[in-house]
Design a protein around this nucleic acid. Structure first.
Lengths: 348, 348
DNA sequence: TTGTAGGCGTTATCAC
DNA sequence: GTGATAACGCCTACAA
């Protein structure tokens, strides 16, 4: 593969002139430049990014860490793919490449920052990675440019992007209230999860605001899976005081709930309204199609990459500036669907 | 960030000894090794991959080119995500990282091999990239280790992985024949596509083998979209001699066909059997769930990465060896689904 | 078993 | 406007 030296020889200049042309410095005579450019083309020369990076300490590559490739479920695949799509778009626009890395649930000793320490990437975007305060410390101490999506790091040393779970939930609940529902159950998850907790809190707060009671029996806990959605329906069937609507904290569980309702011959939405949260297009394929709350995952990834690149390219690396990371909360979109409607009673 | 030199100083050895420890050469005294290892840990030292790569001309990174992040459709997202998942798994096992690159439909001047020429990757896996013979020439001439998925390059200079479209189609058709179908329509696509053509050929051949006629009117052309699936149903409704089964060359169109059938109140499978090809899990969410043919996308990606890495690490780089790329065709899986069954007539 | 010199391809700095 | 030199971090010879 051709090097600067080869190009220089062919063009009859020194290699440093070639370097100047490549980096479009202005102190090269127009004619020399042309000669060099011609030689570059002739030799199919590409600057070796390694030599380059070794010098300016910049590889023009971002890292994206996610559990994407574990293939937990269709939904998680889509979730991370959408975010990655946004990240990739910004990378493309800014001339960065994108390295993806998988946090495997199994390997306890996953090294979160290896790619950075090895100088394979200039910064890292984390999603679903469960950073601990210990990790945040490491980021601070070693000035690792990082951005996290959908999991508040509570530190200005790291960028933070999220969807507006609070308002998204509130508006979704209001949709149900406007349809006349007064008995709404909530399907959350057992596992600790900031986002779902936020949704739950907002759910409760909104009910309270509208003086709607929430009996303890209306709180159900699942595990993201479809099965847990089905089980939720089984559980509701056993209740004496049955709810007329079910707020599922994730789409995946909502799919299960719809399935469970079909099995039990519960008419959706006449006898039970079901609403989800996440906004995967899968909902469109189901009958009735799922009403849900859509996170702008693409935009979130796009913005995360933008923040990160800005931080990386920030010339002033003083301590103060390093703490200037922004926090961006994206509004969510209420998605229409025939899985919610007015309650028409059980005896149809 | 610490360098070999820093580690060496702390351990009281020369930096070359550090290098030896890192690369686990055996000519280092056990005790020295321990001291070095301790220093490495203390300084949180990681070998700089750039310096390393500059020397041994290997970056331990694979590139994967796909139109994934264009987000054409849910199905294409899943398709490429599944393959990437397999690629990533093998990369992980072999200690490689994975760089992803998007071939944008819009940008005509996409440089297929940039990542390689820049030494950012050691080899590239292409999917849905539409390599031309001109590209194949470039691969040959510049000895670029490449692997292509699902698009026969017809050249041993490049690895080739595919699903067994031929037998997959044949078996699927036989499933329909076994259900008693004798009038089967085929929904293909207008665009030129090797895979779909293979499926069509095998479809026709299998019918012929079983002496089943295929009237020209039974060939419908779509464009992958759901709409074209719906339109296919509209078209079939107008036929005098209606088929009892529809073979869709992609799942995406099958989803549309199911939707179209529902709209037209055609009972599936009693009045029309519908079968797809690709095997996305989305089919499970639809009612009735889609019978289809599943490509082992994960395995295909996994194998592609394996072939590529083997080729990269092959010590003998003689011309002959370079042409030793394998071609691997994966068997497909017939997925059960209630969208196919025996024909029960139109007057129910 | 350990150390020295040179080079991988690039760019920054300084000189002409 | 152009060129020489040193440096980035590492590794492969060769030498001790």
């Amino acid at each position: 593969m051709a090097t600067q030296e080869d190009v220089a020889r062919l063009a009859g200049v020194s290699f440093i002139t070639v370097s100047r042309v490549i980096n479009s410095k202005d102190n090269v005579k127009e004619e020399t430049k042309k000669r060099v450019l011609k030689a570059i083309k002739e030799l199919n020369y590409y600057p070796n990014s390694l030599g380059r990076a070794l010098n300016n300490n910049r590889v023009f590559t971002l890292g994206a860490v996610s559990p994407l490739f574990q293939g937990y479920s269709l939904e998680s695949d889509l979730y991370f793919a959408k975010i990655l799509s946004g990240i990739e778009k910004m990378c493309f626009e800014k001339g960065y490449d994108l390295l993806i890395s998988t946090k495997r649930q199994s390997s306890k000793d996953f090294n979160y920052f290896r790619l950075f320490y090895q100088r394979k990437v200039d910064g890292i975007i984390f999603m679903g990675a469960n950073l601990t305060s210990h990790h945040i410390e490491e980021i601070k101490n070693n000035h690792i440019p990082c951005c996290i999506i959908s999991d508040n790091p509570n530190s200005s040393a790291i960028g933070y992007i999220d969807a507006d779970n609070k308002n998204g939930t509130k508006e979704a609940v209001i949709r149900l209230l406007n349809l006349g529902h007064k008995k709404i159950a909530f399907l959350g998850i057992t596992e600790k999860n900031q986002n779902i907790e936020e949704r739950y809190k907002s759910f409760i707060a909104t009910l309270k605001e509208h003086q709607i009671p929430f009996p303890k029996s209306y709180l159900i806990l699942g595990d993201y899976s479809e099965q847990s959605g089905e089980q939720a329906i089984e559980y509701l069937c056993k209740l004496k005081n049955k709810p007329t609507a079910l707020f599922c904290s994730t789409d995946s569980m909502a799919y299960g709930a719809l399935k469970g309702a079909k099995k039990r011959r519960i008419k959706v939405p006449d006898q039970l309204s079901i609403i989800g949260f996440d906004g995967f297009e899968i909902g469109k394929y189901i009958d009735p199609d799922l009403a849900t709350v859509k996170q702008p995952l693409n935009d979130m990834g796009y913005k995360a990459a933008q923040m990160l690149i800005e931080r990386i390219e920030q010339p002033d690396q003083s301590k103060e500036k390093q703490l200037s990371f922004a926090k961006v909360i994206f509004p969510v979109i209420q998605v229409e669907g025939r899985s919610i409607g007015t309650y028409k009673g059980i005896d149809q």
